[in-house]
Design a protein around this nucleic acid. Structure first.
Length: 727
DNA sequence: GTGTAGGTGGTTTTT
DNA sequence: CCACCTACAC
């Protein structure tokens, strides 16, 4: 590694080099998209260590996503030439979790506390609605969930709230209060709790705080614009006085305001962290000047910016293409055509990113890609550890770790069905309330007291002994063995196996995959911080819900939301669905600051592109199964015209409306004659076999259609001569 | 208590 | 358009 650091410094530009080599003190790096943000953090750590200004042990590096944390770790070990021993690198949530595991007593948590994700949290709230008798027509559990998380993100506990006069607010407060109680009793911590609790841990334990303040002499934060109130407080607390805190961020890429992120934190940092030095990184190494100019023009429509103009020495490149699809399927077909073109010009599929505002948009795009035989992979939708059957299996394990976990108890008591229905569960919960004990204890009492009928008693006994046996096995069996036992002895695996249908079989396979996941986990995650493998695994499944990737092959087109695209780049980028109401999303219609966030999201999307950018929208879109007229997004009008090339489709076509006359021919199509061909229609040709209509041109006798044949590839055929028939 | 047929109501983004 | 939920029949 002796070659390295001087050489590495040379590839940095002056501003980057300055940021990397500022010796001590607080540093704010305002870094535009593609200007080498992460690189600065990583190099700064390496530089400080190599100049013996600090040791790895005193580094705390925080990121926002797991993806980013992994990236940082691997770049660090590459640069340092070894594993970054003793460094704390991770997400806010991950690091908070680690603190809480190490100091669970001081944090007033049970040793076996469990991390729950948003879904679990919602379940707890729903059940609370029932026990509190909250009117579910007037109160939305999701809204209350949002309320609770918002409060926690602001660092406010239920008992710190002033009691509200507004009856609506009052109910929310009450649910919050009871929710906290349940979490305490059952040993559960949601995501926001991790942050708040670890903040309180440090705040309330001066000697711990002093220890960590002394230890982490250097704190570095990536994507600082995404920090929320409690994360900021956490940093401020941990940094203490006169420390060396480096934060890197871009106010123009703040896209998590809805989750409590505060851009103002950047200004606050400058004010509240003494002697902060400000460095701007404005040179972009990623995009063509055209793309960059478009991005700059777009973002200039936002007020209240820090002010920063990205520039590049890169070439001008192609203009940005805007395509107006007839409907969303036409839009997708256009994307496919453009991808083909890219591939034909010796581009590869993994150079392509298709971005959209909401996950729901992915399906039509996927279908078009499948039909075109282009391999793709998707980030989004259900992650592995979020699947219902997986959560079922994990709930058994959670119950084993902590029998007082009523939520998990409720989840699995009758999954798979074992004859313990609503009525029996009700009896158990009543017993639990009566004896102030957990559902688990109540279930055993129910057997003793014979409050359930014989048949149910038998199943209940079976359930109890299942869990007890597992409890016995925990210390001796490996994680992999445990899970194997759970899915077999609980009957879960058999339950899905015996069901008809692909879905059920998939679920069975997922359960088996869970065994592999546990196996991998055991191999890759050596027990750290003396956590039991089982607890570590369960936390891992909540905190990092697993790869969001599913789809085909390696060299694949990547589909994802604009949010998950942050931090990535692609030579070729499509942003789809640039329509009023979709992007910007109608939720942000009335709220100017929400609209600005949408614009930043668009800015993020645009700046993902290196060489070529396509922006598409549809004039009609199916929403809730209804065709709706749509209008182009206002953002499209904010790009300077000279950077844009608008592509118009040749004819008004629709997948649902026929576009050309039938085999009889003479039909002009103008009268909407029915038996014509449609885009996307399956057809059959005597010689080429079956295929799909993907395009057409001309009219009347000169109509030609472009057919993608399953076997013979794509061909243009004159409709008048080709003996084409609907398949 | 369990399973299925219909109706219903709901789409932002994520640690 | 879909996944979820309620209402019924077993």
């Amino acid at each position: 590694m002796e070659t390295s650091l001087t050489d590495y410094l040379e590839i940095l530009n002056p501003a980057q080099r300055e940021a990397v080599t500022v010796p001590e003190g607080n540093l704010l790096v305002l870094a535009g998209a593609g200007s080498g943000k992460t690189r600065v953090i990583v190099h700064r750590i390496a530089w400080l260590i190599s100049h013996q200004l600090m040791v790895a042990y005193s580094v705390l590096a925080v990121t926002f996503t797991n993806k980013a944390a992994c990236e940082m770790k691997s770049r660090l070990s590459e640069l340092l030439g070894r594993e970054a021993d003793g460094m704390w690198v991770g997400t806010f949530h991950g690091l908070s979790h680690r603190l809480l595991r190490l100091h669970w007593q001081e944090a007033q948590l049970p040793e076996s506390f469990q991390v729950i994700d948003g879904d679990d949290q919602l379940q707890v709230i729903r059940r609370l609605f029932k026990t509190l008798g909250v009117n579910e027509d007037r109160f939305d559990a999701k809204k209350v969930q949002g309320y609770i998380n918002r409060k926690k993100d602001e660092g406010i506990r239920a008992n710190q709230l002033l009691s509200a006069e507004n009856p609506y607010e009052k109910v929310q407060q009450e649910v919050y209060l009871q929710y906290e109680k349940i979490c305490t009793e059952s040993g559960l911590a949601d995501f926001a709790e991790l942050l708040l609790r670890s903040y309180e841990l440090l705040k309330n334990n001066p000697e711990l705080l002093t220890h960590y303040q002394a230890r982490f002499s250097h704190v570095l934060v990536d994507e600082f614009q995404d920090t929320n109130a409690i994360q900021y407080q956490w940093l401020l607390l941990l940094a203490g006085q006169a420390k060396s805190v480096t934060v890197v961020g871009d106010d123009d890429q703040s896209i998590y305001g809805w989750r409590g992120a505060k851009i103002e934190n950047i200004r606050r940092f400058e004010r509240e962290f003494k002697g902060t030095r400000l460095i701007r990184l404005e040179q972009n190494y990623r995009s063509t000047s055209t793309i960059l100019a478009a991005a700059n023009a777009l973002i200039s429509h936002n007020g209240s910016r820090f002010g920063k103009t990205l520039w590049t020495e890169g070439e001008q490149g192609d203009p940005i293409t805007i395509y107006a699809g007839f409907n969303e399927e036409d839009e997708a077909l256009y994307v496919v055509r453009a991808i083909r073109e890219w591939l034909n010009q010796s581009g590869t599929a993994d150079e392509i990113g298709i971005l959209y505002r909401s996950n729901a948009q992915s399906r039509v795009l996927e279908e078009a890609l499948v039909r075109a035989g282009i391999s793709y992979s998707i980030y989004g939708g259900l992650r592995f550890f979020e699947r219902a059957e997986i959560k079922d299996a994990l709930a058994y394990l959670r119950l084993v770790v902590n029998v007082a976990d009523n939520t998990s108890f409720e989840r699995v008591i009758n999954v798979p069905p074992r004859g313990i229905g609503d009525r029996s569960l009700e009896k158990i919960t009543e017993l639990a309330a009566e004896h102030h004990c957990s559902y688990w204890e109540a279930a055993k009492k129910a057997i003793e007291l014979r409050v359930v009928s014989g048949k149910i008693e038998t199943s209940l006994r079976g359930f109890v002994s299942l869990i007890e046996n597992l409890c016995v096995a925990v210390p001796s069996d490996s994680l992999t063995q445990l899970i194997d036992v759970v899915i077999r002895n609980s009957g879960l695996l058999r339950y899905f196996r015996e069901q008809e249908g692909e879905k059920a079989q998939n679920r069975a396979e997922n359960l088996e995959e869970l065994i592999n996941a546990a196996n991998d986990f055991e191999a890759e995650y050596p027990v750290e911080d003396n956590l039991s493998p089982l607890t570590a695994f369960l936390s891992y499944t909540s905190l990092e819900a697993g790869e969001r990737k599913n789809g085909t092959g390696d060299a694949a087109v990547q589909l994802m939301t604009l949010h998950s695209a942050k931090g990535l780049e692609f030579p070729l980028v499509f942003i789809c669905g640039l329509e009023d109401g979709l992007f910007p999303h109608h939720f942000s219609r009335e709220n100017p600051s929400a609209l600005e966030e949408e614009r930043r999201l668009c800015y993020v999307g645009v700046t993902r592109a290196r060489k070529k950018l396509y922006l598409t929208y549809a004039e009609k879109r199916r929403v809730f199964g209804r065709d709706e007229d749509r209008h182009p997004s206002r953002f499209l009008r904010e790009f300077p015209e000279h950077l844009i090339q608008e592509v118009h489709r040749k004819v008004s076509v629709s997948v649902r409306t026929p576009f050309v006359g039938s085999a009889g021919m003479s039909g002009s199509g103008a009268d909407g004659s029915n038996e014509g061909y449609r885009l996307g229609q399956r057809v059959v040709h005597p010689k080429f076999g079956e295929g799909t209509v993907v395009d057409h041109e001309g009219s009347g006798e000169r109509t030609r259609v472009h057919v993608q044949f399953d076997v013979y590839g794509s061909k243009w055929l004159a409709l008048a001569y080709a003996r084409l028939e609907p398949a």
